[in-house]
Simulated scan of single mutants.
Amino acid sequence: MLQTESKTMNLEEFLDWYPDGYGRFELHDGVVIEMQATGTHEQVASFLALKQGIEIERLALPYFVARQCVVKAVDSDKSGYRPDVIVLDENALKDEPLWKKRSLITKGETAKLVIEVVSTNWQDDYLLKLGEYEKLGIPEYWIVDYLGLGGRRYIGNPKQPTISVYQMVEGEYMVTQFKGEERIQSAIFPELNLTAEQIFKIGE
């Protein structure tokens, strides 16, 4: 994760600046951050996107996995996040004022599921983004920590690879964690046949 611009920007300036087809960037409180993913990180994210896409097609749901999408912070015009995987509701896009122009999501109900694959900047996923996605009201958020990098208060001691699934219950996230051969329980895709270990093997 690298800071790439010396001046601060608002979200509109950031989207104007964003280099087309190159790199992956986020805006954190006005600061442009380049997210430098490893090859295994990309493999894990791609595998998860594929699994979500298969489930959407199997169930003929009005959802799709967006290739590029920025999620605007709920109470700031200086922060926007690009999830590793995001499942969007096609029917909700009509209420997104900037979707057609910017590929920007401002409402939590537009996103059915967000997945972040943990890298060395694990605090962003467990602290910053967890809080922002909860405030937005995104119904389900996965933190896929395939290397067991997160803080011990989040994944236990000793650290081990963990998938944390946060689901919205009465306005706040409740978490269930999955390890090893445990099948991931998803409210969005209740029939999803996917274990934590299947994901971890991709990242080996």
Rank of each mutant, 00 (worst) to 15 (best):
Q36W: 01
E55P: 02
E13F: 14
E12F: 11
Q198L: 04
F200E: 00
F189V: 12
A66Q: 07
F47N: 10
L127G: 02
K112E: 00
G21H: 02
K72N: 02
D125A: 06
S186K: 08
E204L: 14
A187K: 14
E12V: 00
L192N: 08
G137P: 08
M9R: 12
V31T: 14
F178Q: 03
L130W: 13
D145F: 05
V118D: 11
Y22G: 07
R152K: 12
E170P: 08
P139I: 08
I155L: 06
S6N: 14
I138N: 08
G203D: 12
R153E: 15
Y126L: 03
P158H: 07
L136D: 10
L147V: 13
G151P: 00
S76G: 01
L2H: 12
Q43Y: 09
E13A: 15
G39C: 03
G180W: 10
D77V: 01
D29A: 07
E181H: 13
R67S: 14
P139T: 12
T8D: 01
D77N: 10
R152Y: 09
D84K: 00
V70Q: 14
Y81P: 01
F64K: 10
Y146F: 15
Y81R: 07
A37L: 14
I86A: 11
G21N: 07
N121H: 08
T162K: 04
G151E: 00
V32C: 01
D84S: 04
L104E: 09
Y63L: 13
T40N: 09
I56W: 07
F200V: 14
V32H: 04
R153V: 11
V118T: 12
R102Q: 15
W99G: 09
D89L: 10
L147P: 07
T162F: 07
Q123G: 08
T120I: 14
L2Y: 11
K72E: 05
E109M: 04
G156D: 02
G203W: 11
P161Q: 02
M9G: 04
D124V: 05
D29W: 08
W142A: 01
I56N: 03
T195S: 13
L50Y: 07
M9L: 15
T38K: 05
I199K: 06
Y166I: 03
V74M: 07
L88P: 02
E55K: 03
V87D: 00
E55V: 02
Y141F: 06
L98N: 11
T106Y: 02
Y141S: 02
F14D: 03
K72P: 00
I105Q: 10
L27I: 04
S103Q: 11
P190Q: 11
F25W: 13
L59E: 12
R153C: 15
P97H: 08
V169A: 05
F178H: 05
I56K: 03
D77R: 03
G203S: 11
Y81T: 03
F64M: 10
S186L: 06
S119P: 11
A187Q: 13
E170W: 07
K159N: 09
V44C: 08
D145V: 09
W99R: 05
E57S: 12
W99S: 06
L88Y: 03
R102A: 14
H41E: 11
L48A: 01
E197G: 06
S164T: 11
M168G: 06
G131H: 04
F64T: 10
E34R: 13
D29N: 14
K94A: 15
T4I: 15
Q123T: 12
L27C: 04
L130E: 10
